[in-house]
Design a protein around this nucleic acid. Structure first.
Lengths: 156, 156
DNA sequence: ATCAATGCAAATAATTTGCAAAAAG
DNA sequence: CTTTTTGCAAATTATTTGCATTGAT
């Protein structure tokens, strides 16, 4: 979980805060560093827990107040995989157009990109009189193990 | 709002209920007829309201207990457009693979299908060791009016 | 100094659930 | 008759908010 900090993403978020004339605080820093030190999808609750390891004073309220800033910046995206909680994906700084494939059984998630799909989308959307801002593509299916063994629940 | 009943979708849902050995009740019928008489996306709350026009005894609890049956049948899909409420899309009986493009300003939604996208998805997903069960593609962008006039909020 | 940001605890709002009564098969 | 389904009202749970205080600039 404690991977290397994505310096670029962090820098871009700090610029975003500056542009909006928002202040840097210890709590925000702890949250930001947490978010950009993982490539995992996380829930609001996990973000509270992890951020508190960096700064014990981070409150749930501040996390909930920071999440909209993160999504507004475009560096993090809110994802609904049909589970009880929303998930947040911190990988949009590096891969602004990536998609998700989720195993219906074990819930393993793989991210992938496709120029081809993006191009076709663009074409269709233009014909419909729109232009594209952002897209999200989620595929649900069966992973290898599920196909092979008929089950794969709870990890590989 | 009161369009023609989608008889096929209704029939398929009744079969689904039978398979699961669930009983037909007046309330369920009112809800089902409501769902398959519109092509609009609706919220749980709207479904309560509309169903009550057919049968005043339909309670909120029953609607909430019926929605999971509808989604489980695959004839209706839960959609998250990033708004406060979830939406339900009753058009999956006729178009099991359709996608959505949403205007970021007026929130106009257009549904579209693409064989090409489906084929590429399939190819990529196979390479990743998965097979496709279902997919959801949501594009956010600007509609014609928004592009032309710089604004289009609240309808056209 | 000034005003934004915070933690806390209370409020909100969608959804879920326990239970006794009603209705389906 | 038996078992499911219902409405009601209370419970649950994620998220939001008011407010007095703290902290950034």
């Amino acid at each position: 979980m404690a991977e290397t900090l994505n310096e670029d993403a962090k820098k871009r978020f700090l610029e975003f805060l500056e542009t909006k004339e928002l202040r840097m605080t210890g709590q925000r820093l702890a949250i930001i560093d947490t978010v950009f030190s993982t490539k995992e999808h996380f829930t609001a609750d996990q973000l509270v827990e992890w951020s508190r390891k960096r700064d014990r004073s981070v409150s749930r309220a501040t996390v909930y107040r920071t999440l909209p800033l993160l999504t507004e910046s475009g560096l993090v995206r809110e994802m609904d995989f049909g589970k009880e909680h929303k998930f947040y994906d911190p990988n949009y700084a590096d891969h602004p157009n990536h998609n998700h494939i989720i195993c219906k059984d074990c819930e393993k998630i793989v991210e992938f990109e496709s120029e081809k799909i993006a191009a076709i989308e663009d074409e269709i959307v233009h014909k419909l009189g729109f232009s594209v801002d952002s897209q999200r593509l989620q595929i649900t299916g069966s992973c290898d193990t599920l196909k092979r063994l008929g089950a794969c629940k709870h990890k590989h």
